[in-house]
Amino acid sequence: MSVSPAVSSPHASLPEKGWYKRNEIAITPWLFLMPAMIFFTIYVIIPIGQSFWISFHQWDGLGEKTWIGTANYERLLGWGDQNMDRKFETSFWNNLRWLVLYLLAIPAGLFIALFLNQTVRGIRFYKSMFFFPFVISQVVVGLVFGWFYLPNDGLFDIITGWVGIDVKGGVLGNPNTATYGIIAAGLWPQTAYCMILYLTGLNAVDPEQVEAARLDGAKGHKMLWYVILPQLKPATFIAFVVTIIGALRSFDLISVMTNGGPFGSTRVLSFFMFEESLSEFGFRMGYGAAIAVVLFFLMLGFIGYFLYSMYRDEKGAH
């Protein structure tokens, strides 16, 4: 079995080529991935597992953890002979309200995007000013809307006063309206975000298709529904992802505007969890972790769907 020297010579002329050089293409990606993976594992992957673990314990965050099995979940969800935690019930329903009402940002954003998708002078300025609220921190948005909702002196109260509506205790002081007031504040920046997604999408709409449809007599909402919206599908998908995640993550606004009140009526799961784990009532980390796990599972449904859609696209691209 002799190898022709003519073939082997280029390799043989490089005997100093080390192990690393020979495996460079296989090893390099791992070297490049290493730092990101280490950080991500330590701060994201492992903590998810730890939260599950902690949720089966009673723990004040300092001393020893005591294993209590599923007691936290039983208390939270009302398994067995207990009632469901009232705070959990309120939080859960508020989360659903957030989820449903927050989605209004998508049609609202589309509406503004359609309104601004023109080529008049100064339109660029208008587009960026409409996007402006998204750049401001939610803490500031919350403060601003808090003043807007002030009882008696707030602009909202003054305007509703003209038509004879008086919300008792102000929008945020009334348990029946407080959550809706906060959601409205949240919709402001979120609509701006959806608007910018749709403006970008509209920019890429195929003008020939629009012209062809126009020649066929399509216009107005028919054109929008059958020609434009299908082309805006990627933008709509992202708008859904960010809006749903944003709705379930809502925390800043609630913390700043009402701090969960009045009478705990504006709690959502994320706020409830924070309150249980780090509030002045004591550190109930185990119970907090159990709430976080429930929230995680609620989100997992959505996350799974998003990932599946992305995975499909990824496979299609190959």
């Binding site: 995640i245 379930l248 994320s270 924070f274 796990v293």
Partner: peptide
């Protein structure tokens, strides 16, 4: 790649207690 994407969507609260502890 998908682990990185998925980590993005996770609710902060599930990281809170362990990250604070760490």
């Amino acid at each position: 790649f998908f682990i990185f994407i998925a980590g993005n969507f996770v609710p902060f609260q599930i990281l809170m207690v362990p990250v604070r502890d760490l």
